[in-house]
Amino acid sequence: MPLEDLVAAAGLAGVILYGVLGGADFGGGIWDLFAGGPRRDEQRAAIARAMGPVWEANHVWLIFVIVLLFTAFPAAFAALSVGLFGLFHLVLLGVSLRGAAFVFRGPQVAHRGAGRWGTVFGVASVITPVLLGMAVGAVSAGSLRVHEGHVQVAGVVPPWLAPVSLAIGGLALTLCAYLAAVYLTVESQGELRDDFRRRALFAGTAVVGLAALALPLLKLETPHLWHGLLGLRAAPVLVAGVASALLSGWALLRRRFRLARAAAIVQVSLLLSGWGLAQYPYLIYPDMTLQDAAAPDPTLRFVVYSLPIGLGLLVPSLWLLFRVFKRVES
């Protein structure tokens, strides 16, 4: 396997971990905003309890992906930074407001303005995953063109506002909401658990509906991506992903919450992997492949060698974190 493919696989793994962990934290914010019914405050407290100790560690996966991108594929990082200048600034606004609002209204400082920060937290949690999904759409849709290292944007509409981008943004939003609600069913009891179960079923239905709407759009607007997704490389993975999605939904209906959580994690991981495989070997379709953008070999080798060492430090630490805070007391 060429070095750049190995590093790209690590990057995709980072995207998946950010999706599965950080995505659920965005989902937590979404359900905080849409908390309602007789147990509104309990829902919010459960979300804050679930996120509090882990959201910062989960957030670092985003930084991991960005650092990996500019270390191993500097030309792509530069091109994306120019082509998605506006989108990335909005992402940063969302990320900053989400994180700041979460601690501003958190238990560290109980105060009167907390309610307003709760709203900021919720709104930023809704907008940011949509924007991140749009970024994913933009690198796949072919609307961001690069010629000799220079980004060219065709037309007045920014490349990330293409319909395919919007659809992927919507999918990202519903997937985050789904993940969070499913995780919360495991981390809550009784009627509260039923609240989150209903929300998970609702979000799951929305995922299916949006995916059904997005597929014809992909076929019409981005035939290359459509063929990639249906190709021999990606299709089996995507089929397995859809099967996991169905399993997760079935488990929710049957109240087998831990199974639903496991299947939801597998589902999102496989869907993102399928996207990565369909996209391969392009980083920015159609002008920049992994090979075009790759850093010189010594840097790639450094990344490949340092990853196991870094993970050797991270994995036991993360295990401890999740063991202390996510062990189910039942």
């Binding site: 650092v67 500019f70 270390t71 191993a72 500097p74 030309a75 990082f77 530069a78 930074s81 290292g149 850093a295 010189p296 840097t299 450094f302 990344v303 340092s306």
Partner: peptide, 10 residues
């Protein structure tokens, strides 16, 4: 970053 990303990245 295009110029030096691969050297400051590590």
């Amino acid at each position: 970053m295009a110029f030096a990303g691969s050297i400051v990245g590590p």
